[in-house]
């Protein structure tokens, strides 16, 4: 057998770089790394210092007073209920659209794609105004609804509508990327093994995109929690009805700075936990797909 293998000649002619050539890249590399490190530190500090300062500002008494205020608890309750409900609506409606965008070619797909991303760049106030004009008493849909004794604006339903509108693109983008990344041959393999299309979707497609869907849902949920502009225009700011956390902070800011700060800290903590959860979910997704 040994004659069959063509043994490549060992190359001993490895050239040693000249001394100046060896050292110069090292200096440049240190400078580069040092510069990049400095910029990184400044960026992190820029993000952290304002928030840290905010957390250090109130005294313990302020925080206790704020925590006991009914305004905080009402706002937390409404924020939690509306954002969770909105997220489920986003998953249901956005999931179908994301699947279609990922899997089907149709006329005007580019336009649909752009429209879906629009709420991300639109100022939320504009969103709120648009919703108000459509669903308001004088709007085409709002007029019809009010003729049947229903009113959307300044209700908790309006809060949900506003949140769904602004958070849809976050979920659709993630879900679409997820559906696109699924190896189609796995679905074909499932069908060839005799599984129905529905079974294939539930047993193969969804488990494979699950981490991406979850990450998208968490992003959408976080966006709902922070939603302010569209809500205040379309749903108003009524404590116990439409007043979510950001709206409560806004109101508190005009009355009592300490309560506003305490509310902000709570929102900050919730957001931090959500983002951490997101990182964890994405990290697991990367591991399972590797």
């Amino acid at each position: 057998m040994s004659q069959l293998k063509n043994v490549p000649a060992v190359d001993n002619g490895e050239r040693q770089p000249e001394s100046w050539a060896r050292e110069r890249p090292a200096i440049a590399s240190y400078l580069f790394k040092g510069g990049a490190g400095l910029i990184a530190v400044v960026t992190v500090l820029f993000l952290v210092i304002p928030l840290a300062w905010l957390c250090l500002w109130p005294t313990a008494d302020d925080l206790i007073v704020a925590t006991l205020s009914p305004m905080l608890w009402d706002a937390m309750k409404i924020s939690f209920i509306t954002s969770t409900l909105s997220t489920f609506l986003v998953i249901g409606f956005g999931g179908v659209l994301a699947f279609m965008l990922a899997r089907f070619q149709f006329r005007g797909k580019m336009i649909v794609d752009t429209l879906v991303d629009l709420p991300m760049v639109l100022p939320p106030m504009v969103t709120g105004l648009a919703l108000l004009m459509l669903f308001g008493r004088n709007g085409p849909i709002g007029g019809w609804l009010s003729a049947h004794g229903l009113a959307l604006p300044f209700t908790v339903a309006a809060v949900v509508l506003a949140q769904v509108f602004v958070s849809l693109p976050f979920f659709i983008r993630a879900a679409r990327a997820g559906f696109e990344s699924v190896d189609r041959r796995l679905e074909t393999a499932s069908l060839l093994l005799g599984a129905s299309k529905a079974r294939t979707f539930i047993q193969i497609t969804v488990p494979l995109v699950w981490p991406t869907l979850l990450a998208g849902a968490i992003l959408a949920w976080a966006r709902c929690l922070g939603e302010f502009g569209a809500t205040i225009v379309f749903a108003g700011n009524f404590q116990g009805v439409t007043q979510t956390m950001p709206l409560a902070i806004f109101e508190a800011l005009q009355v009592n700075l300490n309560v506003a700060i305490a509310l902000s800290i709570v929102l900050l903590l919730v957001s931090f936990c959500l983002v951490m959860l997101l990182k964890f979910v994405i990290g697991r997704a990367v591991v399972t797909h590797a």
Binding site: D183, R185, L186, T188, A189, L191, L192, L193, G194, A195, S196, K197
Partner: peptide
């Protein structure tokens, strides 16, 4: 294809 009852082995096995 789900009703053909064909055994199929993919190139990288899927």
């Amino acid at each position: 294809m789900e009703k053909r009852n064909i055994g199929f082995v993919f190139q990288d096995y899927a």
